[in-house]
Structures are given as C-alpha cells and as structure tokens.
Amino acid sequence: MTVSPGLRRSLRTGLGALGLSLTLLSGCFDTDRGPSPRPREFYYPTGLVTSPGGRSLFVANSDFDLQYRAGTVQAIDLERLRGLVARLQPPAADGGPGTGQVRCEALGLATNDASDSILYPGACAPIDLDAPPDGQGTLVRNSVNIGAFATDIQVMRQPDTAFPGEQGEAGGPNADGSTRARLLLPVRGDPSLTWIDIDDDTGGNQTFQMACGQGTSGRCDDAHRTGVD
C-alpha cells in the first residue's frame, strides 16, 4: 500500500500531538512539582461542611486549574466567624431583631458596587481570613493537603465502637475516652476516597485537629486514601 506524502505528514502531525497530549496528561498530577498550596486561602472551593457540634467549618479546595501541587482541606473557626457576621446586622435600639440592613462599616469593610453583583454578590467586601477584623489572628485554624479535584466533602460521626485500629475505654469509644468524627472527600486527582479524622464537638471542645497521616509533608498518606494502590 502506497501512502501519499500528504497523508504521511498528517499522520506525523497527529501522532506528535497525541504524544504531547499524553506527556502533558501524565504530568498533570505530579505532586513533586509546582508550588505548595497556600493553607490560609480558598482556591476553587468545591465543598463545605460543619463539624457535628457546629464549631468548625471545613472547606475543600480543589486546585481545579492545577496551580499548586495539591488541594487542601481547611478548618475555619466558625464561632468567631459567626460573631463577625453578627456585627454586620446590629440589633435594634430596643434590643430586638435588627432591621436586616447590612452595615459593612461595622467591620471596616468596603461596600460592593451593585453593578458588579454577578462577580461580587455579597453586600460587603470579603473578610480577610488571615487578618479578620476581630484582631484575634487567622480564622484558618488548620489545613492539610489532599489530591487535586476534590468534588465534595461530608462528615460522619463515630459510632459507639472504636474506629478500626483503635481500642475503646469507658467514657468513649477511643482509647483516650474521646469521640471523633470523620471527613470523607471524593478526590478525582488520585483517584481516591480520602478520609480525615476530626473532633466530634457535639458535647465538647473543638481543637481543630485533622489527622490523616500527613506528617511533616502536610499531605494525607496512602492509608487515608481508599482506592489508591
């Protein structure tokens, strides 16, 4: 069979493009390249969930454009955040409910222009997570690294028996007498179901701890990523 010069050129071009595409795809999820994610900034967040007792807000950041070498899960101090939001709607003079009018100046925030409501739908400019107006330091109390493209985040309370590998004692299902909860995140970049142990603050304190075998690298280990060979 004789192949025309034009067809040969087309085949070479097509195969070259395919090879380049495969090369790029093979490097998309290289966790050894690119800058580390910024632990105190949202970056393409795809999921929010509160702790069982409502004292912490957990945010899944997907790193959708692969700007960084990982996505993140952040623990936000929700009690402090509620206090800040409450200052935007002060109560009426008689102590009753407020008028519902948002007062951005109460937190030193600029007012968003109504003409930009599609890009900036809130009434006020955003609160700086790292330097909020209450002057008590960052609202981001903890952060761990996960794979790219997390699509959701859910929380599960611990049952009456210990999690696998833990031995319970009187007063709680874990060896230290405490109870815990678990975050579950489907992550397409691994792909895996990543899980992270957190405080069950239903009847106790919130320490903002997140345990997923991250060690000094800050990244959840393979033992906490179901589906990774």
Results as ranks from 00 to 15, higher is better:
59 V>M: 05
59 V>L: 07
60 A>H: 09
61 N>T: 02
61 N>Q: 04
62 S>I: 00
63 D>H: 02
64 F>K: 15
65 D>T: 08
65 D>S: 09
65 D>W: 02
66 L>T: 07
67 Q>D: 08
67 Q>S: 13
70 A>P: 07
70 A>M: 03
71 G>W: 12
72 T>N: 12
72 T>Q: 10
73 V>Q: 05
75 A>T: 06
78 L>W: 08
79 E>K: 12
80 R>Q: 08
80 R>L: 09
81 L>F: 09
81 L>N: 06
81 L>C: 10
82 R>I: 07
82 R>M: 09
83 G>A: 04
84 L>C: 07
84 L>K: 07
84 L>E: 05
85 V>Q: 02
86 A>L: 07
86 A>N: 11
87 R>G: 04
88 L>S: 10
88 L>P: 00
89 Q>G: 01
89 Q>Y: 10
89 Q>I: 11
90 P>R: 09
90 P>N: 06
91 P>E: 13
91 P>G: 12
92 A>Y: 06
93 A>R: 14
94 D>K: 08
95 G>F: 01
96 G>L: 12
96 G>I: 07
97 P>T: 11
97 P>D: 14
98 G>F: 10
98 G>C: 09
98 G>Y: 11
98 G>I: 05
99 T>K: 11
99 T>A: 15
99 T>Y: 10
100 G>V: 07
100 G>Q: 07
101 Q>L: 15
102 V>I: 15
102 V>L: 12
102 V>W: 08
103 R>T: 02
103 R>V: 10
103 R>W: 02
103 R>H: 13
104 C>T: 02
105 E>K: 12
106 A>R: 10
106 A>I: 01
108 G>L: 04
108 G>Y: 03
109 L>M: 09
110 A>P: 00
111 T>L: 06
111 T>H: 08
111 T>I: 01
112 N>E: 10
112 N>M: 01
112 N>Y: 00
112 N>F: 08
113 D>Y: 10
113 D>M: 00
113 D>Q: 09
115 S>K: 15
115 S>G: 11
115 S>T: 15
116 D>C: 05
117 S>E: 04
117 S>D: 03
117 S>G: 01
118 I>L: 15
119 L>P: 01
120 Y>W: 14
121 P>H: 06
122 G>T: 12
124 C>E: 12
126 P>T: 04
126 P>I: 06
126 P>M: 06
127 I>N: 08
128 D>K: 05
129 L>A: 03
130 D>M: 05
